[in-house]
Design a binder for these strands. Structure first.
Lengths: 339, 339
DNA sequence: ATGAAAGCGCTAACAC
DNA sequence: GTGTTAGCGCTTTCAT
């Protein structure tokens, strides 16, 4: 490392001919409060600017036991939804003088543990987590030391505060309309059965069928993981089994849909009359020959709410609501749905 | 903030009945080197584990003047390429015990300056930057204090080390083949004319035309920004002017292509016989009725190389090569191109 | 083989 | 109004 001597508060103090504490007061904008003379204040401020003084975050954090840092734990940053969330949060944080530390877990519990530990070691003031864990025990323990907010998913029936997308009703609404035309065959392809988005979206699927007066056959529900390759595999197997693509299909997330589309494309089925619908939206869906009905999440609102919630907790302000469900928007594209 | 007393090295030392220095040696795995007795070592280690001792990063950074932290500056995290880069870098960093700090600039020079300053204030050991600046003056100054690596784009003709995608040759190859069939009309839609990806891709475009024996008319080259809305606008205006879509078009990045596709979709032109080609790839392009020829960047390699380069610089190891150009892959999709 | 002490840069009581 | 001092948690000479 190149060694250029850092300008410290002592340097500024010495140059200004005052003590460190006076300089500190001025530089933290508390000169009025402590009745520092305008003259001294201006001198210190001028020097600081001129010398491009940058306070050391580490010294400050060490002293104040606050790092002005938040941790964000996501399964996968290349997932567009999480990318948007990260960007929004990063922006909110920067405006608030906070640094966001982002960690990816690759949907893997042990990697998640390591990532979280390294964040804690860095003394984040709070944690925003889309967890891949099956139990919230670890986070309960952590929550005794620093606030934790769940977003995008709940671990089990954890009582930790949360901000998630409302899924059950919107999926039910989507599915109901389609089920009326496809009462004989309507498949569900989902990710890990235990995590909450899968559970909620399945619950919504079943509720939608019920509302359409359709009985959900057990073989209609297929689980795997959220990886595109899993979507591809599940769909390939289904097609093999049926000897053709299904008549109607709901995929529980964009990754799964990606797998399904890859398969359809490879097998020249993009013009088949499969009625496809999915959670998560993408602008290119408007351009596909296959008209997919989708449920779009409101990532900006998810980010905003998560941020407000975690900062309130960090500052020990009361929480108006510790469980927030963010509404979605349905994009109807299929001609049958629009009819 | 909840106040749970932190376990410090002093606590461990006291409990083990040794001094802080001994504990420190042991905990840093330097007990052999300093001939600490096996007995003391085991005692300290056991205690640390049992008490879940976590060294304070801030105290350590304050002391060592090293933060074990790298800064990544990207224009826009929702751009898939940058998302992949971020994920890869984050992963490489975590494996190396480094924390990656990501900052988004929204393609905006003043926001970039603020973001960089806040990273420096946090004492990052090095900076990996996809800059939106027009001059590298600031970074040259910064580079005197800590290493800076440019990636994805060069600022002007900056001599700072860099890792970028090879663009000129690949664009030329792509364009040449298409220009042979469209010598009468082949448009270029690019982002800000001054930044290097635009320059290089335009150079490649012109080189491709030249190789195909086609003269580049000045009205073929259109510049704007990389935002999808800019792509939409430029394309809309072009169509208005021609009274129809152009016969052949190259878009310089995925954001611009997004804008063009939105327009085509809205105006029911996805089945027109426009020959579209672009820098940047997306899996959904395989599924579109419009067959787009694209150049795919190798984000993993970009990330890997940037990481290797910055860590070498931080550790003051010699750099085998301070200018790396990562090769691309062309995806031919249009029937004419495949013929 | 281990301990004492200094100091990284900063803030906040408490003096004066 | 301003300075002195102590200490946040850690590492590293230098003594013993």
């Amino acid at each position: 490392m190149k060694q250029t001597k850092r300008i410290t508060i002592s340097d500024i103090a010495r140059l200004a001919g005052v003590s460190k504490s006076t300089a500190s007061l001025v530089l933290n904008g508390r000169s009025k409060e402590f009745r520092v003379s305008d003259d001294t204040r201006d001198r210190v401020l001028a020097l600081a600017q001129q010398q491009r003084y940058q306070p050391s975050i580490h010294a400050r954090s060490l002293r104040s036991r606050r790092s002005n840092t938040l941790g964000l734990v996501v399964p996968e940053m290349t997932n567009y939804g999480f990318a948007v969330i990260s960007r929004e949060l990063e922006c909110l944080c920067r405006e608030a003088g906070i640094q966001l530390l982002i960690a990816c877990t690759d949907e893997n519990a042990s990697q998640e543990m390591m990532a979280v530990n390294s964040l804690i070691q860095r003394q984040v003031d709070g944690l925003i987590v889309a967890s891949s864990m099956l139990s919230d025990a670890e986070y309960q323990k952590i929550n005794q030391q620093l606030p934790v907010v769940q977003f995008d998913r709940v671990i089990g029936d954890s009582d930790l505060p949360l901000v998630i997308t409302e899924s059950v009703e919107s999926t039910a609404t989507l599915v109901e309309r389609i089920a009326r035309r496809h009462s004989d065959e309507f498949y569900f392809i989902g990710g890990q059965a235990r995590i909450s988005p899968t559970r909620d979206r399945l619950a919504g699927f079943q509720l939608g069928l019920e509302r359409a007066g359709v009985e959900c056959r057990t073989e209609w529900v297929i689980h795997g993981s959220y990886h595109p390759s899993a979507g591809y595999e599940m769909f390939a197997q289904l097609c093999a089994q049926l000897g053709r693509p299904p008549k109607a299909l709901f995929t529980a997330a964009c990754g799964l849909l990606e797998g399904v589309l890859r398969y359809l494309n490879q097998h020249d089925l993009l013009n088949s009359n499969l009625h496809l619908c999915s959670f998560d939206d993408h602008y290119l869906f408007d351009c596909l020959p296959l008209k997919i009905d989708t449920i779009a999440q409101d990532c900006e609102t998810l980010a905003r709410n998560s941020f407000d919630m975690i900062t309130a907790l960090v500052d020990e302000r009361p929480l108006p609501d510790s469980r927030i469900y963010v509404p979605t928007r349905i994009h109807w594209r299929h001609p049958d749905s629009l009819a």
